[in-house]
Simulated scan of single mutants.
Amino acid sequence: MKWTSTLLAGGTLLLSGCLLSQEARVESDYSYSGQFRRYRSYEFVRGEGLNSDTSRLGAAVRDAIRTRLKVQGYHLARRRPDLLVNFHLFEGDMRFRGYQQEDFTKWVANGSAEDEDTPREARKGYQPVRLLLSEGTLLVTLIDNRSHRAIWNGYASGVSVPAGPRGEVVLRRSVRSIFDQYHVFTAGYLSGQSPAGLDED
Results as ranks from 00 to 15, higher is better:
177 S>K: 08
169 V>M: 07
84 L>S: 11
201 D>L: 13
73 G>Y: 02
60 A>P: 05
180 D>R: 11
125 G>I: 13
64 A>N: 04
12 T>C: 03
41 S>D: 03
131 L>S: 08
107 W>S: 00
127 Q>P: 06
93 D>H: 12
48 E>T: 14
181 Q>H: 14
45 V>D: 06
136 G>K: 04
95 R>L: 10
197 G>C: 00
134 S>K: 15
61 V>W: 05
23 E>G: 00
86 N>K: 08
34 G>E: 06
30 Y>C: 00
88 H>C: 01
73 G>I: 06
110 N>G: 11
125 G>S: 15
7 L>V: 04
63 D>R: 14
44 F>P: 01
159 V>G: 02
149 R>S: 01
109 A>Q: 15
164 G>Y: 06
111 G>S: 07
176 R>K: 15
43 E>H: 12
156 A>F: 04
185 F>D: 10
85 V>D: 02
196 A>K: 11
185 F>K: 01
195 P>M: 13
50 L>E: 10
6 T>Q: 10
118 T>R: 05
96 F>S: 05
166 R>E: 13
103 D>C: 02
32 Y>D: 07
9 A>I: 02
164 G>E: 13
136 G>F: 03
173 R>V: 11
157 S>N: 13
110 N>W: 06
144 D>T: 07
100 Q>Y: 09
13 L>G: 02
34 G>I: 05
145 N>G: 13
54 T>E: 12
108 V>S: 09
37 R>G: 07
187 A>Y: 02
33 S>C: 07
2 K>H: 09
47 G>P: 09
158 G>Q: 07
188 G>A: 09
198 L>Y: 15
30 Y>T: 04
111 G>A: 06
69 L>P: 03
155 Y>M: 07
44 F>S: 04
92 G>M: 04
192 G>V: 11
139 L>Y: 09
31 S>D: 12
144 D>A: 07
114 E>N: 01
200 E>T: 15
31 S>G: 11
125 G>V: 13
55 S>T: 08
180 D>E: 14
17 G>P: 03
54 T>M: 10
116 E>C: 06
120 R>K: 09
78 R>N: 12
106 K>S: 10
157 S>G: 12
58 G>N: 07
193 Q>P: 03
173 R>M: 11
177 S>G: 15
128 P>C: 08
37 R>M: 02
164 G>K: 10
101 Q>C: 00
164 G>I: 12
19 L>Q: 13
26 V>M: 01
197 G>D: 06
34 G>Y: 02
168 E>I: 04
168 E>D: 13
57 L>V: 07
119 P>V: 00
192 G>Q: 13
27 E>L: 15
145 N>L: 05
104 F>Q: 00
34 G>Q: 04
157 S>C: 14
64 A>Q: 08
158 G>F: 08
131 L>N: 05
